[in-house]
Design a binder for these strands. Structure first.
Lengths: 204, 204, 204, 204
DNA sequence: CATGAATGAGTGTTCATTCAT
DNA sequence: CATGAATGAACACTCATTCAT
């Protein structure tokens, strides 16, 4: 199965388009994709349901574009980190910080991704999610393994288990994070890293 | 608008009933509650959709019973831990271990809870979810706070943030955990606690 | 001061108008009236759907104008034949030849007429179709009856049945006829008349 | 006492199914497939639109089953004729008679076929229409050619043109034929064959 | 207990049409 | 003249639910 790279139909007036996508993403995130009717989206956008179809092919194509846009930006940030030639500990710190920044910028998209991607990957249209997941896993696993090899991380860790815990904790933050709240993404990242790297127990 | 209770058969053969609930829980967990049609459940159970209504009032009542059963058992375990008079570190260890055991026993229910509870709590019928969440938060927060006070946990932690991380990481494991796999719940708990308590970084 | 008219007028550039009608007729004929969206017509005409409404009141009014134009021309030809004072056999020959000429000139309109007129006559707007059908039937029936009376046609014919066969065979040719093909309308008429008048069996 | 035999338990009520298909066929024939809403079909059947979907997958699958059933029966009759080893003139007579009998039995299906098949063949689902058309054309052309070779039909005929005329006239009769009217299918076939074989002109 | 058949509200989507620019 | 964006009614279809048998 080849990763069909279909370009999203970016024609005219990208402003209105991404405005509507932002609205849709919020409703998807809040109510769930299936439970979100296209009428609800239209209500939030101040128009009628049918009018959305002037801008988008389908409800599903909105979802696709939301997720694609998010993942494209995510990988821009991740690739910059991974190409920077940092040590494993610094790479992990940078990846975590970058992740919380993405949550800050794309909270609805992240929440949708968290909740729906498992069902979606089965569809060919969303095969790009699987591709992204593979790259994601590879980036994290290699960082953790490198850290163990270089004695930055503990040798007795089950790397796959650690990867799952780290991955999930980071992204699940999208479910409670509120942009503009009292914690900046960087502050959350710092606290989180402190916990993950050094543990919550007092050192003796 | 009072819900007309017509023929809830709580007296009917409880074996068949919980068998059907188990089937329903698996389908809910795999496909999502909204995306699960009552017909799919019936297919898995080898009957027709309409026949389920002899056993249950509605699709929603199946969901409710699944979640109630799970939470009842969960609190049996949690209360035993909380009433045991352990220190904060041991309480945390016991709560985490108990949680992974619940995931082992009620994986579908936990997965459903993770995915759907946010939408459900808004409905009066599922108010018990909110109640459970309050108790849950109180148990964890007080354990963490007690640990900080007694110098078992680091003093510089943001307790609420730590609570959220711990809570989410534990339960999100239900999304990838497979009973009968290579890790027992106790082993996963041990690894997880090692990471959370002592961190993944090498101590100097 | 001339009062500004709201609706487009018949006085607007008639060339563009009939060009658009020709386009519309082709699409109607090929895809069927109901299955033809106004957007498809606009695509063929190189404009947007809404723009058609500067030229026409509605999709239905396009259909009406296409059929009216066709029937007007048809009756010009038919009336010339009927007023020429020919004998029944010559009248039949001339009507058939004229019909194939109309198919040659207005193939899309004829195809539309064949396919849609039965549904359309029920609407008041298309009552002129019923009127035309009456005149048509009268012209043919009287020619056939005259032919029987004057011993040009066989006496044992069921005239109504014969009328229906002749009528349908002639017009249904619009469904396969392609202008500019290997058969001219006159050649088709000749072959058809040979068959209808003398039969396909070998004479003994 | 012998144990009571189990009920035949044949496939679920084919009676209701074909009853509904008959209703649908009539509405399709009268209003056209596209113009027929499933609501209209349901109204005619005395049920709600959604209820049709208990019996059929889609509006399109109803259409398919109607056409398939008709063509299957048609070819039963045609094959019997073609395998009977008749001379060309007798074959033509038998095919025409058989065709009018099919119109008598399946008038709505024939009318639908006439009106919609041209659009439908483009869809893969209705590829069987093209197959049927090929067999149909082959049967008629070979009969006509054999007739010319054996001097039963005139040598100066354009065989393809004759085929088209004969084909169309026969089937278009479905648009005006009313079962139970004053003409039996056999009587119409006789009149039609008299016209086609011997012509309508008086012999000199 | 289970089935077969139906209901009816709701869902995503289409499309002729309008109108300010 | 044409466009871009919207409307609103209708459409095919889904699905939780009911109920006589």
């Amino acid at each position: 199965m080849p990763p069909t790279k279909k370009k999203p139909q970016v024609t005219a007036a990208p402003a209105r388009r991404s405005e509507l996508l932002g609205t849709a993403a919020e409703v998807f995130a809040e109510q769930g994709y299936n439970a979100t009717t296209v009428r609800k989206i239209a209500d939030h956008a101040g128009m009628l349901a049918g009018s959305l179809y002037y801008h988008f092919d389908s409800k599903e194509s909105m979802l696709e574009e939301i997720l694609r846009t998010f993942l494209d930006e995510l990988w821009d940030g991740y690739d910059a980190v991974l190409d920077a030639g940092l040590g494993p500990r610094e790479t992990l710190q940078a990846l975590v910080t970058e992740s919380f920044r993405e949550i800050d910028r794309h909270r609805p998209a992240v929440a949708i991704y968290q909740k729906e991607s498992k069902q979606l990957v089965a569809q060919e249209r969303f095969a790009f999610l699987a591709e992204s997941q593979r790259r994601f896993e590879k980036a994290w696993l290699s960082t953790l393994e490198r850290g163990v090899a270089e004695r930055a991380f503990r040798a007795d860790l089950d790397v796959r288990l650690t990867y799952r815990f780290v991955r999930d904790t980071v992204w699940v933050a999208a479910s409670w994070y509120r942009p503009g709240g009292q914690h900046s993404p960087e502050e959350i990242a710092r606290q989180y890293l402190s916990m993950v790297l050094d543990g919550i127990a007092v050192r003796e």
